[in-house]
């Protein structure tokens, strides 16, 4: 268990990652010129309520640990915002790319 509650530094999540029985939502934020680093990425549940937020890595990578359900990932950056939705079920990796413009 983590001692703190803060969001850890984000890294890329390879497609063959063992999710250890958890539902993992991961992806990359891209802008007009490719990967966009440092965006604030928010996870919203099916009611649109805030669930969590991380800051994407310099390469735009982010990751959340969730449960089964409908999720929206929303990215905020000085250059704009964007979002993408995903439905999750069984534990595993769900890839959610987000484009910001």
């Amino acid at each position: 268990m983590s001692d703190g509650c803060g969001a850890p530094a984000q890294t890329a999540t390879p497609a063959d990652t063992d999710t250890q029985g958890q539902v993992v939502l991961a992806g990359k934020v891209t802008g007009n010129d490719g990967p966009l680093g440092g965006a604030y990425v928010r996870l919203l549940n099916d009611d649109g309520d805030f669930v969590g937020e991380v800051q994407a890595s310099a390469d735009g990578d982010f990751r959340f640990y969730a449960a089964s359900g409908e999720w929206t990932v929303r990215a905020l950056h000085a250059s704009g915002s964007g979002e993408a939705s995903v439905r999750t079920g069984e534990p595993g990796l769900y890839e959610v790319p987000v484009t910001v413009n």
Binding site: C5, P8, N45, D49, V51, G52, E53, Y65, A66, A67
Partner: peptide, 21 residues
């Protein structure tokens, strides 16, 4: 905490792994 932590569905915020004793 988030509704999912409140109800007991999650043990920690969604940006953290969920193992918890």
């Amino acid at each position: 905490r988030s509704p999912d932590e409140f109800t007991g569905k999650l043990n920690a915020p969604a940006h953290l792994p969920q193992e918890s004793a």
